[in-house]
Computed example of a mutant assay.
Amino acid sequence: MKKILVTGADGFIGSHLTETLVRLGYDVKAFVYYNSFNSWGWLDHCADDVRGKFEVFVGDIRDPNGVRSAIKGTDAVLHLAALIGIPFSYHSPDAYIDTNIKGTLNVLQAARDFDLSKVIHTSTSEVYGTAQFVPITEEHPVRGQSPYSASKIGADQIAYSFYTSFQTPVITVRPFNTYGPRQSARAIIPTIITQILSGKKEIRLGSVSPTRDFNYVGDTVRGFLSALNASQGFGEVVNIGNGFEITMGDTAKFISEIIGTTITIQTDEARLRPDKSEVERLWAANGKAKQLFGWEPEYKGLDGFKKGLTETIEWFKNPENRKGYKADIYNV
């Protein structure tokens, strides 16, 4: 596989993945979302060693003609384009169906028509809902506790159906909670970091009791690459997770300790999910990724988490990197 299309290349994980693919010598086409500012998202701020070394395709994942045009001439697609903000999915669920389900269908149709050698479809740990058992294996039931997670379940099933119906070479990668440089402020870790670095001592958060399995972005990128290069796993769902859980409250505590400050946490009612929609516990089983792909996290366990937090905080400490963040408001 030489020519790789990355959808959602302008986003947090997609931009890191695009940079890594370029460095590894792949011919990369980056699918970015059309906008009147001609912004390529985080690819506008990509590392100097990859700048100008990838092709950019500007389009909309919801448009089948544009997706076909982007996929034509490529060997494989890494499909990350999605709407991912859970609170916004309460407000605008239609947009999630159109983007996450229909967008995935567009990718699969084009991949089938052009006989691509591999489709890596991106799922999310949110599809599991609150853990019914831990660690969560790929056999755990799925439960759409938000319109976002429901849309991703639908996208996952569309991907699987193309494998079973048409032998489309699909692998579904299911990352747990990825964090790191460039993550948007709608996520918990950038929310905490940006509030502290803006000088706040009282941090406004939602519920701090839920647990998450945090995966450093470099490990998530390696998970995608391992799936891309694997000779097995077609038709399978594979967790990409660290293999440990930590509460939101303890996460805030470790961030404040690394930065070297003392904080108090104030519950912001606007940031709370509806009771039955909150995913209370996530903790990944990652043995299948090791078995099929030879992947395991480098930023492993609590020590790896602290290392990843330190690197993330260092990136956010640069005022230039924080220019687009709005620490004084709730980022939906």
Rank of each mutant, 00 (worst) to 15 (best):
H45W: 13
H45D: 12
C46N: 02
A47G: 10
D48E: 15
D49K: 09
V50Q: 10
G52R: 09
K53V: 02
K53L: 12
K53G: 06
F54T: 10
F54G: 10
E55R: 11
V56M: 09
D60V: 03
D60F: 09
I61D: 07
I61V: 15
I61L: 14
D63M: 04
N65P: 00
V67D: 08
R68N: 13
S69R: 14
S69F: 03
S69P: 04
A70C: 05
I71E: 05
I71Q: 09
K72R: 14
T74I: 12
D75P: 05
A76F: 06
V77T: 06
L78K: 04
H79P: 07
L80W: 01
L80Q: 08
A81S: 13
A81Q: 05
A82K: 02
A82M: 07
L83D: 02
I84G: 10
I84F: 14
G85R: 15
G85H: 14
I86P: 05
I86D: 10
P87S: 11
P87M: 12
P87E: 10
F88I: 13
H91T: 14
S92V: 12
S92I: 06
D94V: 08
Y96L: 00
Y96P: 02
I97D: 04
T99I: 08
T99K: 02
N100F: 02
N100E: 03
N100Q: 07
I101D: 02
I101M: 09
T104Q: 03
T104K: 00
L105Q: 13
N106W: 10
N106C: 04
N106A: 06
V107I: 10
Q109L: 14
A110H: 00
A110V: 01
A111P: 04
A111W: 03
R112D: 14
D113Y: 00
F114K: 00
L116G: 01
L116T: 01
K118S: 03
K118I: 07
I120A: 04
T122M: 09
S123D: 03
S123L: 06
T124H: 02
S125M: 11
S125A: 15
